Amino acid sequence: MPFLGQDWRSPGWSWVKTEDGWKRFEFFSHDLEDNSTELELKELQDENKENLFTGDDCEAAAKKRKKDNFNNNAKSHFFYQEKWIYVQKESTRERHGYCTLGEAFNRLDFSSAIQDIRRFNYVVKLVQLIAKSQLTSLSGAAQKNYFNVLEKIVRKVLDDQQNPRLIKDLLHDLGSTLCILIREVGKSVLVGNINIWICRLETIINWQQQLSNFQIPKQVSNGITLDDLPLHMQNNILYKFSDGWDIVNLGQVTSTLHMLSEDWHLWKKLCQYHFAEKQSCRHLMLSEKEHVDWKLMYFTLQKYYPKKEQYGDTLQFCRHCSILFWKDSGHPCTANDPDNCFMPVSPQHFIDLFRF
């Protein structure tokens, strides 16, 4: 007969004496909730008691969704913050099971990586790729951690006033995926209560509205401005950009930068950086004077082919130890020449590592 009760070998519950009597002491309670969340929970409980029999169906559904959202937003202590993990694809005598994408996303320290300017674009691209195709493959804990990381990304953009366009593209892809999963595919592919996913979709829409109304405040400076720089220095700044939309946006600042941003040499170099010569020959764009319109060709080519990815810092994979790690932290490698075993991991390669 199966044993359904609490394991008799466990140490049992811990109890503390309070003014209202003895209460069970819950570990991690101080880490999981703060004063605001406790007050919100009390308000929800009071509302449920008052409107137990008199509440409308719509109000009851809204309260249920609010409670589910509160439970979903509670922080969890099951997320590790490790600098490296072992990528295991099959069971062996020494190790059983395998490492999944959700486990890797939970254990690697992506929350701290967001604060590093070198890794920010890398994490954003990885989160965007997961939103497009791998969201349903994550476990419930991994999905919860995924949205916690996403919230930190949005808050950082709103606070630092940098990279708003990247986050707009990310939220657009994630919102489109959630709409398809909720309305067309159905509840069977989603882990957790459907009300939680509806609240997440509403949060994404709210973030999109905040970013659409986002404006960088003008800063008055008595020093040297960008327009005061010599012409060749402004031109060199434009040649440092690797994204066409950044060049277009910068060209709207002054008339001089607009003139420099329309230089066909600049767009030709950008096309040669991102795309191969065969790709450019397939989509030749000629102007009215029968010259190659390199600016139009760039925006045409990016619709058909992926652009060359460029990141300040990426995850590294050790072929000898099968370990995924951040470069600055390293890992305990047993190879004679560890440097030759390391290879950079792009966001797409990171996802491919966990496809079995």
Rank of each mutant, 00 (worst) to 15 (best):
L324Q: 03
E50R: 04
R118Y: 13
C281A: 15
V154S: 02
W245G: 06
S112M: 01
T203W: 11
Q272L: 14
H291V: 00
C58A: 08
E262H: 08
S255W: 15
W264Q: 09
N340K: 14
L4W: 15
S10F: 10
S322W: 15
F78Q: 03
R65E: 12
H232G: 02
R65D: 02
S242K: 02
N48I: 15
L150Y: 14
D313S: 05
P332M: 14
N206D: 10
K42H: 02
E43N: 08
L250E: 06
S111W: 00
L44V: 11
E26M: 08
K289T: 10
V127Y: 06
K308M: 02
K308G: 03
D243M: 11
Q279Y: 09
V149P: 10
A142D: 09
F325H: 12
D293M: 05
Q209P: 07
K156N: 07
M343F: 05
Q161D: 00
C281Q: 10
Y98V: 11
E82W: 08
I114G: 08
C341L: 13
E151Y: 13
R119H: 01
S280R: 15
K152M: 08
K168G: 05
N71T: 06
N71P: 14
G244I: 12
L41S: 04
G102L: 01
I153K: 07
N121Y: 05
H30R: 02
L129G: 12
F25R: 10
I247Y: 09
L39D: 05
D228M: 11
S91V: 08
F214K: 07
K152F: 07
E151M: 02
D31A: 06
A60C: 06
D246I: 00
D46F: 08
H320V: 03
W294F: 10
K240A: 00
W264M: 14
L190A: 09
R93Q: 15
L39M: 06
S287P: 12
S221E: 07
F105V: 06
Y122R: 04
A142Y: 07
T225D: 02
G244M: 03
L135K: 05
